[in-house]
Design a protein around this nucleic acid. Structure first.
Lengths: 195, 195, 195, 195
DNA sequence: GATGAATGAGTATTCATTCAT
DNA sequence: CATGAATGAATACTCATTCAT
């Protein structure tokens, strides 16, 4: 897994994103990814030791991007509730703009824990913690009820957005626009937890 | 080809539930399921035409049970908010009591849409609609704000519960007990949508 | 490596003997062996876990036969020198009659120690010991000089026969007949070690 | 394509000797040899057209050395029996001093005839003929029985030494020292063929 | 000449599915 | 109906060899 050439590594991940989204990890052939990337089958193995490693690297790369982007978005607001709204909007926007990536994270991330025993998805935990931190902040500022348990609330909020994403990813056509969905979901949540 | 009322059919599904939960659909071998069921490999093909069909039948059977059970629970309450609380509690209780089933629905249901192109998960839609119907009822009774879009709200609520389940399914130890989680999540939601 | 059906197991070994002799272990394809045996590729893996295991089983089977046969031959003589002569004759005869087997033992047995780290060729050691025991007996009867070290002598005698075999195996045409070669080699040896 | 006098060519052969001895020809990777030689993979192909050619060149170089050395040793004696004793001693000494080379010649030379259809090992034939010539000389001088067939005797003697070598090459610890083994084996042979 | 990234032909092994008993 | 031995299509991965730099 030499990484002399990062450009090719990214090309492979981009191709894999497309193929995994279309076929799913198990049905995707390494040779298809190679073809999509415009390289030879063997070249993939210069950059990734196993097929599994492509998926892991894909997650890490995508999650890093998502995480960085979301941190930036949140930092633009100071009010915890505004942060939550922004989180909802940009999360759903991201799904809309990156359907392939969303599908993989939706579908494959779920089974990942099964075939990647030792792979700890730290990036995902950090992403959830962005919400947890906002809630904590809200509690400290007296905006959010002291009864709220951040560990449950962050999952409830993420799950609400995530289920919406899944619906979109698996549907052919998009019912409800991003703005509406984001506004509704963040509104339920904010009203649900505010003091 | 399927003989739905057969006892052996259920034995196979029970075995498959265990094996799919442990290994995931793709890594589970038909021969393992046969062994777990105490029958010969070939016997499985008397009851199911393909490996995929076992998973589909498994979903249908489990979802039917879940659906029937949840309908019964909901009917015991007349107040929409009480129904929501009961839904949350019994959904999470179900996960706790049926870890194997939960894991399969969590993990494999996601990829199912990929390999089962033509499989329409009607039972799952009906399950979601249980929530949608409660919300509709709440709106009609003036308990829930008219702004709430049931198609979004039902997914937000289900997603919140589902993410909690996923956390439990993938964690070794169970943080937060069922009652607490159910109370918190239904409370956010009810407060979030009530008039 | 179930062995329900010994007949098929032997059929595979017979086919492997032919193919390994023709191509060598590394160049022999499992599919060729299957074809030669008149079975499907996958069937081989019902009887042998790996390609390596075919070679190991082949050795064990052939060496058992060779060993049993040679023990019988030796027991027909009571004089140690007559035993040595008989050993030489039947060893070379065996090579002549089983060219494929001889070639594999000649060629592949040598490299076997390399890829089969843990495979201890006990049968071969027992074969060598047949000679060692004769020498020991000869020493005890005062027919063979006390200076002779059986551990060296048995290898010298076997090596002499073996080199002759190798010459035959690798040559197109057979120079020197079995009787002549056996007589010459056992004669050098007997005269060389007798008291 | 080969540049025989090149220093790099020898460096590659030296590296190959080490790697082939450790892993065997088929399991040795060209890249490993390159690394051992401290050069790039592609450089090997400037000096050798195929992996096979490295083995052939290795044989030729080693056998030339061995042959030259043995010729020199033999020429130091005038008595045929003394020559035989010296041959035995220096053959076994060579094995002891060059374990890697010995292992390759022992193990890989055997299979070489298989993958190198057209490779005629003339050097090896010349080596055997050194013994054949001594026997011929002995017969002419009346020291060796006229019944002895040099073509068989030379192989018997070489085979005896060779089997001893093989035992040493494949054993972890060396039983019997070189002097003892050489004395024993040449003694059997000389006594066995003398007039 | 030297490099080493890229190539792609080659193959052992797996496992869902079949079917003769 | 039940069996389980047999099938053979399918595919991840390796590594000798090439060739642009």
């Amino acid at each position: 897994m030499r990484h002399k050439n990062n450009e090719k590594s990214r090309k492979i991940i981009a191709a894999a994103t497309k193929i995994f989204a279309k076929k799913g990890f198990y049905k995707a052939k390494v040779s298809e990814i190679a073809q999509e990337a415009g390289i030879a089958d063997g070249t993939i193995y210069i950059y990734f030791k196993h097929k599994d490693d492509i998926l892991i690297a894909l997650f890490e790369e995508k999650m890093r991007e998502v995480l960085d982007n979301m941190k930036k978005q949140i930092s633009l607001e100071s009010d915890p509730f505004a942060k939550i709204e922004r989180f909802a909007y940009f999360h759903l926007k991201l799904i809309e703009d990156n359907k392939d990536m969303a599908e993989i994270i939706q579908v494959e991330l779920r089974q990942s824990s099964k075939f990647m025993k030792n792979y700890q998805n730290k990036k995902f935990a950090q992403y959830l913690d962005l919400i947890g931190d906002i809630i904590q902040e809200g509690k400290e500022k007296g905006l959010i009820s002291q009864d709220i348990i951040p560990g449950i609330a962050k999952r409830a909020f993420f799950g609400a957005l995530d289920e919406m994403s899944r619906f979109w990813v698996l549907s052919k056509r998009r019912k409800y626009d991003v703005e509406t969905a984001a506004r509704q979901i963040s509104s339920y949540f904010i009203n649900g937890i505010k003091n």
